[in-house]
Design a protein around this nucleic acid. Structure first.
Lengths: 231, 231
DNA sequence: CACTCAATAATGTGATATCATTTTTAAAAT
DNA sequence: ATTTTAAAAATGATATCACATTATTGAGTG
């Protein structure tokens, strides 16, 4: 029997998307980002087509796009799965994420305005509220919104696609971390980032972003992987 | 009348590719990389399908993949073009390329072996031969092979897709630089990279890679853009 | 009970058809 | 000549179909 894939993602509604393919892409992307699809799950075009009530064509497009972004892995036998995390890959991903986000923040610095800082403060305030509610999905999205707002302050930035790809690759694992690590403290380094922006201190900004990435997933991710290896 | 797209790329032959889509992708990728398709050229699925004697389906897959990698731009009206280079985008791309390649080199350092160094020397020797022949296409490919060999020494690296994307975005412009800048010196920083690898000096490696990117395209690219703005 | 292997089902790929939208064209109007 | 505009052609998006390849199943065998 076919193993049904859980897509318990808030239905976004096909409206507002120019094409069906884009709708499927955004839906699957958020499912991967938020870890709604378990690593190891194999995806089939026809299966998803039935599940979403569409023809395989737009599904195929969306899956290809996701595989371009390393969000889904194409096996030799043409099967597609959400990759499982391994310790070495994890280390590479967080190192790359740090490099990319520090780069993006530094390149955004010249474009920081008071308006943008206020926008970031607003997002961060909303995050504080969601931390109390322990709403992890919403928190993940807000966290990404915070970082994306900062990095896209630079109107010519070319780094967001790479950052998105890394986020996608870490998404499913982060969900596992949140679920399985008991004491998952959300430490908010955004205050430091905002402080650095206010005084236009690029070195302080760099290290604040670096710490944000480290505290956000690196430490607890390593713990989970160590526990998995021991078992 | 339809403007025919020049695809004067050495026919690679459909053999050796698992799927037609992959063949089209590799063919178009090398065309973009080597600048065989002029920036501003608009690509149509049906046009390419006729040109390559295939159905639109695999063409579509390949184009979508290339657009995921920012090699082709999708306009609002669903048209696709090879993007033209602008000064600000160029600065972002070379800065990102530097960041990514320095990162990749540093993460590869622990995996460097004597065998790998010899492989790099072999590629570099071949480059020296091609420099004399002024064979720019072959040189570009060898240069990429040199860098890819270094970065993929790390078996867990996750940065190559991002580097490939940047290479693709700089490809068409680099061709223009080679063609239009009179004195296009190819300065070979690979000797420095190899020397740094031999003595396992990571800071020397970082700055050698940085200089290699700068000398390779940054300086002459800026000159061309300045000349274009003046005109 | 474990294993082999053939038949059956399911899958990804690529081609074709249809449709709404966009681009091109060329004739008409100024 | 230049602009307007309506008809024609071309295009991308999606659905459907055919086919070769791969996975699954289950009966037979040890």
């Amino acid at each position: 029997m076919r193993k049904n894939i859980e897509l318990n993602i808030p239905e976004i509604g096909k409206d507002g998307f120019a094409t069906t393919q884009e709708y499927v892409y955004e839906r699957l992307k958020s499912a991967v980002m938020l870890g709604a699809i378990q690593p190891g799950t194999s995806l089939t075009m026809r299966g998803l087509a039935v599940e979403l009530g569409l023809s395989p064509t737009p599904i195929r497009d969306a899956l290809r796009r996701l595989s371009s972004e390393s969000a889904v892995e194409i096996l030799g036998n043409r099967r597609m799965i959400i990759p499982t995390m391994l310790s070495q890959r994890f280390e590479e991903l967080v190192a790359l994420r740090t490099t990319l986000e520090v780069h993006a923040a530094r390149r955004a610095m010249p474009y920081i305005s008071e308006v943008l800082i206020n926008e970031l403060i607003k997002i961060d305030d909303e995050m504080d509220r969601q931390i109390e509610l322990q709403n992890h999905d919403h928190l993940t999205l807000l966290n990404q919104q915070f970082h994306r707002t900062l990095y896209t302050a630079n109107p010519n930035q070319t780094v967001m696609p790479a950052i998105n790809s890394v986020w996608l690759q870490l998404g499913p694992f982060q969900r596992q971390v949140i679920e399985k690590v008991e004491k998952y403290y959300i430490i908010d380094r955004h205050k430091e980032i905002i402080a650095a922006l206010k005084i236009r201190d690029i070195e302080m900004l760099s290290s604040a972003v670096e710490r944000d990435v480290f505290d956000g997933i690196t430490h607890s991710g390593r713990e989970l992987l160590k526990a998995q290896n021991a078992a």
